[in-house]
Design a binder for these strands. Structure first.
Lengths: 265, 265
DNA sequence: GCCATTTTTTGACGACTTGTCAGTTCTTGA
DNA sequence: TCAAGAACTGACAAGTCGTCAAAAAATGGC
């Protein structure tokens, strides 16, 4: 009796979860192909072959779907951060690994930035469901905590000492700002080429190096071959992701400066 | 005859321009009070006491109005940058002045970030008018050029030398990223306090200092009192703006760490 | 196998928006 | 004073979101 009770229930459960994925996948495709302004509920319903009413049982409204998309990718970002943080090496290499994770993340999920942009805009949040909001916040905290953890490790390991009035969180904020800003600009600016930036991705790493040198986080870039660390991290920690990106971009590998090994700089 | 020809025309002209301002002001208010999702053409029309049709003679569509708002504020940002760049002092002080200009800008025009966020999002641009697009791009180029100019001055003045493979534009991009990222996060994040950041504005300046130290842009922060430079720039270059902000925030001056002189750090 | 009850799904519909355009009002200048 | 053109208007077509009564499907007791 217990099984006949439980099995149908869990099948139902799985069906519901599966449909949630269907909806999000359809939404992601829609968003990628037609953009936010064309993106509408009727066509998502059409695509997944369920009615609009059913979608509204999963999501409070249109915005909630976008939040769902963001939560999905943020989850993946947090995973990448976890793996980066677990790299066995100098603390500064571990932070470099986080930088690489960010970079890989934005290359693997470029739509994420479109969504995040909308997310961060006017009066969006109040329309979404509390539950999903918390989910996203959780991922954000997790990522933030991972970075702050590495910083604390660096301090206790004697590789970094912050001015007395400065907290590890503030350094994390600086790194976050730079990374978020750079990636947003890269993803959305119409005219970086025109402005004279051939390879903004690479510039980000350069700025990172200099920022950490400014904090005197040892080993300093002049005393250590971080290009080699980069290769090691990519092959050890992100082999799968790196392969994916190399495939994606192999046709213009040399132009992006990442399809090849970092030594070329 | 010529006067009777010209005067009415220019009055008409002025009326039209005046109305454009009316529309943008109403839109700005709407956006600030109800957010993007409630923001609609009918209520703007109601507020300015012209019909919707008339609004559509000025702007191609809703998005074009937002672009108009952005162009208005970007113009102001470019002005602040111009003034910052004209500060007579060390090149690194001039870059600090740019940093202060950014900070003042976001404090004076917080709605701008809401708009910019929407601007940078999905399939927005294709709906707007080419003319206004160019206007905005122009402001962006101008700001970018000002910063790059200061960097070139620093290089030719012997205060900074970039690695051979790195261009001034790449450094500008790094500064832009950090500033844009930080301000966006500050303006839109729900939970900075919760995460342990009491005064993110101040953290930005700290990161800036460290980044420039990393580039060995002299005088290094350890050899120069940049807090004092900050005060000098604020009083010499941005006296009016600074007063405005102090008034705005005087009731929680100590909390923001900017209502008072920077020495307190 | 049958039917009453509960759960799930559906899509027509109300409410609201955007952008248009035919018709009206205002302005200009002889 | 009035004709011609410019400017303005608001009803309207087209399209969207989110709801909800009714239909369909699943469940479970007999």
């Amino acid at each position: 009796m217990s099984t006949s009770h439980i099995i149908p229930k869990s099948r139902k459960q799985r069906e519901i979860e599966h449909r949630e994925h269907l909806i999000l996948d359809a939404a992601r495709r829609q968003l990628a192909s037609v953009g936010y302004f064309q993106f509408n509920m009727d066509s998502i319903a059409g695509e997944i072959e369920y009615s609009k009413g059913t979608i509204y049982q999963h999501f409070k409204n249109k915005e909630d779907i976008l939040l769902g998309l963001a939560a999905q990718t943020m989850e993946k970002r947090a995973e990448l951060f976890d793996r980066a943080s677990a790299f066995r090496g100098e603390s500064r290499e571990r932070i470099l690994a986080i930088g690489l994770a960010s970079d890989l993340f934005m290359r693997l999920y470029p739509e994420h930035f479109r969504v995040e942009q909308i997310l961060r805009s006017a009066s969006f949040w109040e329309r979404t469901s509390e539950e999903r909001r918390q989910l996203l916040k959780g991922c954000e905290f997790r990522c933030f905590g991972i970075v702050t953890g590495i910083i604390r490790d660096a301090i206790s390991g004697g590789h970094l000492s912050l001015p007395a009035e400065m907290s590890p969180e503030e350094l994390t904020f600086g790194l976050w700002s730079m990374s978020y800003g750079a990636h947003t600009i890269i993803a959305t600016s119409q005219s970086l080429e025109e402005i004279g930036l051939k390879n903004p991705h690479e510039s980000v790493f350069f700025s990172f190096d200099k920022l950490l040198d400014g904090y005197r986080w040892t080993p300093l870039s002049q005393d250590w071959d971080y290009d080699q660390s980069k290769v090691r991290i990519l092959t050890d920690v992100f082999p799968h992701e790196w392969t994916l990106i190399q495939k994606q971009q192999s046709f213009h590998a040399r132009a992006t400066g990442m399809g090849n090994s970092p030594q070329e700089r």
